[in-house]
Simulated scan of single mutants.
Amino acid sequence: MTRPRLFSGPEPLAPKVPEITAMFWLIKIITTGMGEAMSDFLGQQSVPAAGAIGIFGIWFGLRLQFRATEYRAPVYWFCVWMVAIFGTMVSDGLRDGAGMSYSVATVIFSIVTAAVFVRWYRSEKTLSIHSIVTRRREVFYWSAVLATFALGTASGDWTAIQLKLGFFPSALLFGGIIIIPGLLWWRGKLNPIAAFWAAYIVTRPLGASFADWFGKPHDATGLGLGDGVASGLMLIVFFALVAWVTARKNDIQEPGEHWHLPHPHLPHGAGLRAQPAEG
Rank of each mutant, 00 (worst) to 15 (best):
T88R: 02
M34D: 12
A14Q: 10
S39K: 07
D251M: 02
P15Y: 00
F109G: 02
G222R: 06
H258M: 11
G43F: 07
V242S: 03
T21S: 08
A98P: 04
A50T: 06
A160L: 00
P276K: 08
L190A: 01
L151I: 00
R5D: 11
G87A: 08
I27E: 02
I27P: 00
P192T: 03
W259M: 08
F210D: 07
R273A: 06
I180T: 11
Q44N: 15
R95E: 14
H263C: 06
G35K: 09
L206M: 11
R119I: 11
G51R: 09
Q275M: 07
A198L: 14
P262K: 02
W197H: 03
H130V: 05
A14V: 02
M82N: 10
L6K: 04
S170V: 07
A14D: 09
F140Y: 13
S91M: 01
L146I: 10
W25R: 07
H265E: 12
V133F: 08
I129A: 07
G224R: 02
A274P: 02
V107S: 13
S143Q: 08
G35W: 09
Y71W: 00
I193K: 09
M234F: 07
I20P: 08
T2D: 13
I236N: 11
L206E: 04
P74R: 02
R72H: 03
L184S: 06
G87R: 05
H218F: 11
L62Q: 03
A68L: 03
I177P: 09
V237S: 05
S91A: 15
L173K: 07
E138F: 06
W158C: 04
W185M: 14
G43P: 05
L206T: 03
K249F: 03
F149M: 09
L151T: 04
L151W: 14
W186I: 06
G57I: 10
W213M: 04
L223E: 07
F214G: 07
R248T: 13
V229N: 02
L184C: 08
P276S: 07
T221Y: 09
I180K: 08
F239A: 14
S8P: 11
L127R: 05
I27V: 10
C79H: 05
A160Y: 00
Q65M: 06
I29G: 11
A68G: 02
W244L: 15
S123T: 11
N191M: 04
S155R: 05
G176D: 12
A211R: 06
T113P: 01
A220C: 09
F140I: 04
T153P: 01
E278D: 10
A115M: 14
